[in-house]
């Protein structure tokens, strides 16, 4: 058997395992919480909802499972997938292992948008926190794009523009919070900034899931182009890649995915940075396999992080961003330590 055939078989096997894991994680996500609900009840609730009409299940349990926990787990999965895919794409495109979805100013912009609505009262009560965050994210992204365009458009220019944009909008957020927020508001905003799935319901899932699937599909269609960036933009162009078009489409797609996810659940850190590296260790660097793997691992990881954030301290929900970083940081450190040494030439 050729290595290519065995690699794709391995990819398929990993994909099947991950898909099973994803379904299992969703069910566990719905089962575990302050009141533990048997998996059987969860399965029956889901089955009866899919068939239409709920019969023979405690309506309170069914309500918790369907309206609160499952919707939450589905959004967590979509966010995890979207952030992990965005991380893979940006790391490949910018040839920087430290790139993450928030590099382009999106999380900083979303924070600013959120505090503008929540503290400054922008929109006079008609704008929700999510709409404000989405607006802020797109504003900051636009700022970063213009700055990157003016400063040379290369990977380094994009990264530096992202740093400048993020710093600016983070400073604006801090300014607003320290100047105008009460202690309670400041605490609430901090909670939101670290990622929060508490208010998430099905309408959020109906937005998050299509956006994540759309983003994953667009990125998958560009997987060969992303592979071709391994030796830099010049080499990619010499391999027939329309470099500028691919950069615009890929950065635009990841920015859209990230902005929507951040506006729904806040800036959940580390998923977009760690999961891509973990996925590379599992299936290698070819994007046709890497992207779906990262999506599934990211989804499962975030469902798990959400369950932990709800259950690790009885009677208290921790921000999910604390959980991802708490487990993400050591995982990242492990990956760095165990990454095979790169001898010779290097980058």
């Amino acid at each position: 058997m050729t290595p290519f055939a065995s690699a794709s078989l391995r990819g398929l096997a990993v994909g099947a395992v991950c898909l099973t894991l994803l379904v299992a994680a969703l069910l566990f996500g719905a089962a575990i919480g302050e009141t533990r609900i048997p998996l059987e009840t969860v399965a029956r609730t889901v089955a009866s909802h899919l068939r239409g009409g709920v019969h023979g299940i405690d309506p309170i349990d069914a309500g918790i499972v369907w309206n609160y926990r499952l919707s939450r787990a589905v959004v967590a999965a979509a966010c995890g997938a979207a952030l992990a895919v965005s991380g893979v794409v940006l790391q490949s495109l910018l040839r920087n292992p430290l790139a993450d979805p928030y590099l382009l100013g999106i999380s900083a912009g979303a924070s600013y948008g959120a505090v503008s609505v929540a503290i400054l009262g922008l929109g006079g009560g008609f704008l929700s926190l999510s709409v404000g965050a989405l607006g802020g994210a797109l504003l900051a992204f636009g700022f970063v794009v213009v700055l990157a365009f003016l400063s040379g458009r290369g990977p380094t220019a994009i990264i530096l523009a992202g740093i400048a944009g993020s710093q600016l909008f983070n400073a604006l957020t801090s300014f607003v919070v320290t100047k105008s927020a009460t202690a309670d508001e400041a605490r609430g905003i901090m909670f939101w900034l670290l990622g929060n799935l508490s208010g998430v319901r099905w309408p959020d899932a109906w937005l998050a899931v299509p956006v994540a699937l759309f983003g994953l599909t667009v990125c998958l269609l560009h997987s060969r182009a992303l592979d071709a960036f391994a030796f830099g933009t010049h080499a990619a162009a010499a391999l027939g890649i329309a470099v500028r078009r691919v950069q615009v489409v890929m950065i635009g797609t990841t920015a859209l995915m990230t902005a929507v996810m951040v506006s729904l659940v806040g800036s959940i850190g580390f998923v977009g940075l760690v999961i891509p590296h973990a996925a590379r260790l599992i299936v290698g660097v070819r994007h046709g396999i890497l992207l779906p793997t990262a999506a599934l691992v990211g989804a499962v990881f975030l469902i798990g992080a959400d369950v932990l954030s709800r259950t690790i301290i009885a009677g208290q929900v921790l921000p999910i961003g604390v959980m991802t970083a708490l487990f993400g940081a050591p995982a990242f450190a492990l990956i760095l330590v165990h990454r095979p040494a790169q001898t010779g030439g290097g980058r």
């Binding site: 292992p97 391994a230 030796f231 830099g232 660097v285 095979p340």
Partner: peptide, 8 residues
Amino acid sequence: QAETGERL
């Protein structure tokens, strides 16, 4: 001397 950081 085209180089890559990816593990290809």
